[in-house]
C-alpha cells in the first residue's frame, strides 16, 4: 500500500498563486462519485433483489453468457451476475470496515504522537516506520496465517496496516499545524490544548485525512481482492471478486466473461474511489480552490 503522492509533497509556501496547469474542474469528483454510487447502488439493490438465489445451482455448469444468465454461470451452475453483485457487498464492506479500523486507530495514534514530547515522538516515528516496512499484504498474510482465512481477518489485517500509514500522515500534519504562528498565539493567550485540537488542529487536518482515507479505501479493496485471489481472504463458496477471478482463470479461454467481469468491477470501484479522492483534494486544497 503506498502513500498518496500529493499529500507527501511539501506544503506550498503561503501566497503561491494557483497555477494554470493545475486548475481542474471537479469532474474528478463527479465521475468518481458516480462510479462509486453505481457500485453502491448495485450492492443496495442486491439486498432487495437478486436475479437468482446465491446458491441456486439450477443454471447448469458453465453456461455461456446470454439468456437468463447475463454473464453465464460458474462451474457449480450459480449465476455469475448474482455472484458479482454479492462480491460487491464484500468489496464495499472491506473498504468501509478497513477504513473504519484504520481511520480510528491511525488518527488517534497520530494525534498522540504529534502532541508527544520530542523523545516519545521520535520513538513513535520509528515504530510507525517499522510497521510501514511490513507491506499491507505481507502483514495481512501473516495475520491470516494464524487466525485462518476469513473476511473478518482480512478486514482487520488491512485496517491495521492502514492504521500505521494514517498515523504517520496524521503525525506529520499535526506537527505542521502546531508549528503555525496562530497556535503559538493561542497558547500564549491561554487557550487549553483540547480546545486547540478541536478548534484548530482537527479542522485543519481533516480535509487531507479525508482525501487520504478515500484513497486508502481503494487500496483496501485491491488488497482484499489480492488476498482472496491467493486463497487467504474470503473463503469459498462466498463470492469475492478476487476469488471469482481465481476460479475464472481455469476457464479463461472458454468462458472469458467470468475472467473479465469481476476485474472490471474492481477497476470501476477503485477508480471511482481514487477519482473521488482527487476531486475532494481539489475541493479542499486551498492552493487549488478557485
Amino acid at each position: 500500500m503506498s502513500l498518496d503522492p500529493e499529500t507527501l509533497s511539501p506544503p506550498a509556501p503561503a501566497g503561491t498563486a494557483p497555477r494554470k496547469a493545475r486548475r481542474r474542474l471537479s469532474w474528478h469528483l463527479v465521475l468518481g462519485l458516480i462510479l462509486v454510487l453505481v457500485v453502491a447502488g448495485a450492492v443496495l439493490v442486491s439486498y432487495v433483489w437478486l436475479p437468482f438465489a446465491p446458491d441456486d445451482t439450477s443454471g447448469g455448469r458453465l453456461t455461456p453468457p446470454g439468456g437468463d444468465h447475463l454473464l453465464g454461470t460458474d462451474k457449480l451452475g450459480r449465476d455469475l451476475f448474482t455472484q458479482l453483485l454479492i462480491g460487491g457487498r464484500i468489496a464495499l464492506g472491506t473498504a468501509l470496515g478497513a477504513v473504519a479500523v484504520g481511520g480510528v486507530l491511525g488518527v488517534s495514534a497520530g494525534l498522540l504522537a504529534g502532541f508527544a514530547t520530542r523523545w516519545l515522538d521520535d520513538a513513535a516515528a520509528v515504530v510507525l516506520d517499522i510497521l510501514i516496512a511490513f507491506p499491507t499484504l505481507l502483514l495481512a498474510m501473516l495475520i491470516v496465517a494464524g487466525a485462518g482465512a476469513s473476511l473478518g481477518t482480512a478486514i482487520l489485517a488491512i485496517g491495521l496496516a492502514m492504521a500505521a500509514i494514517v498515523a504517520r500522515l496524521t503525525r506529520v500534519l499535526v506537527k505542521q499545524v502546531l508549528a503555525r504562528d496562530y497556535i503559538t498565539a493561542a497558547r500564549v493567550a491561554g487557550v487549553s490544548w483540547p480546545r486547540i485540537v478541536a478548534a484548530h488542529v482537527l479542522p485543519n487536518i481533516a480535509p487531507v485525512l479525508l482525501v487520504n482515507l478515500a484513497l486508502q479505501a481503494g487500496l483496501a479493496v485491491l488488497a482484499e481482492a489480492s488476498l482472496s485471489y491467493l486463497g487467504l481472504g474470503t473463503p469459498p463458496p462466498n463470492a469475492s471478486w478476487g476469488r471469482m477471478l481465481f476460479e475464472a482463470q481455469a476457464t479463461v479461454l472458454t468462458a472469458p466473461a467470468a475472467a473479465l467481469a469481476p476485474g472490471i468491477a474492481l477497476v470501476v470501484l477503485v477508480i471511482g474511489m481514487n477519482l473521488t479522492a482527487d476531486g475532494l483534494r481539489d475541493l479542499t486544497d486551498p492552493r487549488r480552490r478557485r
Binding site: A225, L245, V252, A259, G263, V267, V270, I271, L275
Partner: peptide
C-alpha cells in the same frame, strides 16, 4: 495512470 493504479496486479498477469 489512473487506470493503472486501480488494476489488481494478478488480473493484469492473468490477462
Amino acid at each position: 495512470a489512473q487506470l493503472g493504479i486501480a488494476v489488481p496486479a494478478f488480473w493484469v498477469g492473468l490477462l
